[in-house]
Amino acid sequence: GQVNVNNTTYTFPTPKLAKEFAQKAAKKYNLTVHVSGNTVTVK
């Protein structure tokens, strides 16, 4: 799974890890998680 945070893309071996990372990043920066297919964007 891929996660985009502040124009930086992070790649994870599983969608589960990507989702967990996205949720932590969203909480940390007070942003929202947007899911589109296999790509998760935090903005």
Rank of each mutant, 00 (worst) to 15 (best):
36 S>N: 11
43 K>W: 15
3 V>E: 12
18 A>V: 01
9 T>L: 07
21 F>R: 01
40 V>E: 00
1 G>Y: 07
12 F>S: 01
20 E>H: 07
37 G>D: 04
22 A>K: 02
31 L>G: 05
18 A>K: 00
34 H>A: 09
26 A>M: 13
42 V>T: 02
30 N>Y: 09
8 T>E: 09
23 Q>S: 09
33 V>I: 08
18 A>M: 01
7 N>K: 14
19 K>F: 13
34 H>L: 14
21 F>M: 03
36 S>E: 13
5 V>E: 12
32 T>E: 13
9 T>E: 07
30 N>L: 06
14 T>N: 10
42 V>Q: 01
13 P>I: 05
42 V>N: 00
43 K>M: 15
17 L>N: 03
20 E>V: 07
38 N>M: 05
12 F>P: 01
1 G>N: 12
33 V>H: 01
2 Q>R: 11
18 A>R: 00
41 T>D: 03
27 K>A: 09
5 V>T: 12
5 V>I: 13
12 F>Y: 02
42 V>P: 00
14 T>S: 10
25 A>M: 15
9 T>V: 14
24 K>T: 07
32 T>W: 07
11 T>G: 02
31 L>P: 02
28 K>Q: 10
40 V>T: 01
18 A>I: 01
41 T>S: 05
25 A>S: 04
10 Y>K: 03
24 K>Y: 14
31 L>V: 13
16 K>L: 09
35 V>L: 10
28 K>E: 10
36 S>D: 13
32 T>S: 09
10 Y>S: 02
10 Y>N: 02
6 N>V: 14
1 G>W: 07
35 V>I: 09
33 V>A: 04
11 T>E: 08
37 G>A: 04
30 N>V: 03
32 T>H: 09
36 S>C: 09
16 K>R: 09
42 V>L: 08
29 Y>H: 10
38 N>P: 03
23 Q>F: 08
4 N>V: 11
21 F>T: 01
34 H>S: 14
42 V>G: 01
22 A>R: 01
27 K>R: 09
17 L>S: 06
15 P>D: 08
19 K>Y: 13
23 Q>D: 13
2 Q>F: 10
26 A>H: 08
5 V>A: 11
23 Q>P: 00
19 K>G: 05
33 V>S: 03
28 K>F: 13
22 A>W: 02
6 N>E: 10
43 K>I: 15
14 T>W: 03
9 T>Y: 10
35 V>H: 03
4 N>Y: 05
13 P>S: 09
15 P>V: 13
